[in-house]
């Protein structure tokens, strides 16, 4: 039987300096934070990160892992402006390609289908094309319309966190929104998925939930079980975002304002220590779902 099980350290060990890494989830929602923390504990550097950004982006920027960021926003919802991302930007520490939210998924789709670009009207009339070096293309048909050619956003690796996986890489996502996780998976050479529950054969345990399999296992390279692996982001329907943790994290950007002084608090030496430090599995699972 196919067996794609890996440890988080093995997953991060397969990444290398300079890679382009896509991160699933959306803002403070269902982010593969344990894998992000594992990157921060590693020696990896010069990454290009592509994400609908939340604390994943903020932490990676603060930890000096990011050479370039491809983003449409970085936000913690109730804390609209991600403070560590802001610090990096305002210090001019990272290169950026700023995109519209829809353009970002369009670029992932172009990559997924092996196309050099996909045409779109989005970005016309704004500063995005000029700032990002995006080119236009003309329709060869009678309309002759000028469109922005959104380049493929090809990923070397994608990192996702889902509810369930099996050894072969079948995933199940149970929350109300899959965001663009399937397109991160398909746009990437390799996709690594952490999950709340790992089973041997999905069909023997959860065959009634097969509709929750939002992309196919051929797009999955490695799987690992990390309970609470989305914390402090939300993991619906299990738990909501840890706003207390986000407030402490945001506050630390002002005081002391120095990531090296607080990295231990927000990353920790290993995942077991981290989970203990935020109250353990039970406390995380008891965080109420967000009200929007």
């Amino acid at each position: 039987m196919l067996d794609k099980r890996m440890t988080p350290a093995e997953i991060v060990g397969r990444l290398s300096d300079g890679m382009t890494v896509g991160i699933g989830g959306w803002g403070p929602r269902r982010k593969p934070m344990a894998l992000v923390r594992e990157i921060i504990r590693s020696d990896l550097k010069d990454l290009t990160i592509i994400a609908y950004g939340g604390a994943d982006v903020g932490m990676l920027c603060a930890a000096g892992k990011v050479k370039k960021l491809v983003f449409a926003f970085v936000s913690l919802d109730a804390i609209p402006l991600e403070p560590w991302f802001r610090k990096s930007r305002e210090a001019g520490q990272i290169e950026v390609l700023e995109l519209d939210e829809g353009m970002l998924q369009w670029g992932l789709k172009a990559a997924a289908f092996g196309l050099p670009f996909l045409p779109t009207r989005v970005g016309l009339g704004t500063d995005l094309a000029e700032l990002g070096g995006l080119k236009t293309v003309q329709s060869p048909y009678v309309d002759g319309e000028t469109l922005i050619a959104m380049p493929a956003l090809k990923l070397d690796a994608a990192l996702l966190h889902v509810n369930r996986c099996d050894y072969r890489g079948n995933v199940q996502l149970l929350g109300p929104d899959a965001y663009y996780d399937e397109w991160f998976a398909k746009a990437s050479v390799k996709t690594y998925v952490s999950c709340e529950e790992l089973v041997d054969k999905m069909e023997d345990h959860y065959h009634d939930d097969a509709e929750a399999n939002i992309f196919e296992r051929c797009f999955v390279t490695g799987v690992t079980e990390i309970v609470g692996g989305a914390h402090p982001s939300s993991m619906p329907p299990l738990h909501g975002p840890d706003m207390k943790a986000f407030k402490a994290y945001a506050g630390a950007a002002k005081d002391p304002g120095d990531w090296s002084a607080v990295a231990d608090q927000f990353v920790g030496p290993d995942e077991a220590t981290y989970l203990d430090s935020v109250g353990g599995k039970e406390a995380v699972m008891n965080i109420p779902l967000a009200i929007y």
């Binding site: 926003f73 009207r121 009339g125």
Partner: peptide, 29 residues
């Protein structure tokens, strides 16, 4: 035309970084 991305400075180093353009380019077109 609206802005919710950045104030002042340059695109590489804005004086004040805000949200990013979010979905505004697509919404507006």
């Amino acid at each position: 035309q609206t802005n919710l991305s950045q104030l002042g400075g340059t695109h590489h180093q804005p004086k004040t970084q805000m949200l990013g353009v979010r979905g505004f380019p697509g919404n507006s077109i």
